[in-house]
Amino acid sequence: MSVNVNRFKCGYCGACVGVCPAGALELIETWIEVESTCTDCGICAKICPVGALEVE
């Protein structure tokens, strides 16, 4: 129950962090971390410009 980040696609831009209603995402240097507060809403996956995020 979380979001899967494809590190090989991710451009570490932080767009997903800005739209996460649960505040569950964080951009740390070159990777995204997902916290347990994620609600699987899927907004981040739609927003990602490169399609690096997938809701499991």
Binding site: V17, G18, L25
Partner: peptide, 20 residues
């Protein structure tokens, strides 16, 4: 764009999809 400081301070900066 990925700001957390506002949220930590109690300011809601979350963008809806139409806001980005």
């Amino acid at each position: 764009v990925e700001s957390k400081v506002g949220r930590w301070g109690g300011i809601d900066t979350t963008m809806k999809p139409v806001d980005i």
